[in-house]
Amino acid sequence: MAMPVSKPSLAQRWENYQPSKSTLVWACAATAVVTMIVGFSWGGWVTGGTSRTLAATAGDVARGELASVVCVERFKAATDSPAKLTELNAITDSYKRRQFVEAGGWATMPGQTAPDRRAAEGCAAALAA
């Protein structure tokens, strides 16, 4: 009587597996591609160009916020600030408020010849609040 041939277990098959070089190369390439897709899609990775754009935008926003604070302080330091604040609050259009702040000179930063638009917008919004 012949003995039945037993099928090797999964652990035994795994232990005996010998992948070819081409299989290893393709597995590594596929792993690298999947890693990049996951990293750029969900991992928060960005390219150098995107990083520079984001940094420049953040710098512009921060500069505008700082200029707004300087503008508000310059507005409050003026001798006629209560009357000017009443005049500013009477204006309902945000564009005209920005123009009022620019015309008053409070949004022109030291060393500049023209008013900063972001500073004027932020200043007008802060003063109106």
Rank of each mutant, 00 (worst) to 15 (best):
F100E: 10
R118G: 02
I37R: 03
Q18M: 09
T79P: 02
L10V: 12
P19N: 08
G64N: 12
T50I: 09
P8M: 06
E73G: 00
C123W: 03
A56Y: 08
S9E: 11
A78S: 15
V101F: 06
D93I: 07
A129Y: 05
E73Q: 15
G122N: 11
A83Q: 15
T50S: 08
V69I: 13
A114H: 07
G48H: 04
A29W: 01
F40N: 09
A78M: 02
A124P: 03
P4Y: 01
V38G: 10
T23M: 06
V5S: 11
A90Y: 01
W42P: 00
R117H: 09
R74H: 07
G104I: 03
V61T: 11
S22V: 14
T86A: 15
P4L: 12
K76C: 03
A58W: 00
G64L: 01
D80M: 04
K21T: 08
T50P: 00
D93W: 02
P19F: 08
D60W: 03
W42M: 09
E73N: 15
A11R: 14
A29N: 05
S6N: 09
K21C: 01
Q99Y: 02
F100M: 06
T23H: 05
S22A: 12
A27I: 02
A83E: 14
G59K: 15
F75D: 00
S9W: 00
A58R: 14
V46E: 08
E65W: 05
V25M: 13
G59F: 05
S9Y: 02
R118Y: 11
A129T: 12
G43Q: 03
P19H: 06
R74Y: 03
T92W: 02
A11S: 10
R52Y: 02
P115Y: 05
D80V: 08
G104Y: 10
T113H: 05
T23F: 05
G39P: 00
A11E: 14
V34C: 11
A120L: 06
Q112W: 06
A62R: 13
G64W: 09
G111Q: 06
A126Q: 13
R13I: 13
W106A: 06
G104T: 05
W42K: 11
K84F: 01
C28K: 10
T50Q: 15
N16G: 03
G59A: 15
T57F: 08
V38Q: 07
E87C: 01
K76M: 14
S51I: 00
A120E: 04
R117F: 03
T86H: 02
C28M: 12
L54V: 06
K96P: 00
P110N: 10
V61A: 07
C123I: 07
S9K: 08
K21F: 04
G49W: 08
A107E: 07
L10K: 10
T92R: 11
V70K: 06
T47V: 08
F75T: 05
V38M: 12
E65A: 13
V69F: 08
T50M: 12
L66G: 12
G105T: 08
A128H: 09
A126F: 03
S81T: 03
A27H: 01
T113E: 10
E65C: 01
Q12N: 09
L54D: 04
E102D: 11
Q112F: 12
L54P: 00
M36L: 15
N89C: 05
L54W: 11
D116I: 01
W106G: 04
V101C: 04
S68K: 07
Q99T: 09
W45V: 13
A30M: 13
P110R: 07
K84L: 15
K96S: 11
Q112H: 12
T50Y: 04
G48P: 02
S81K: 03
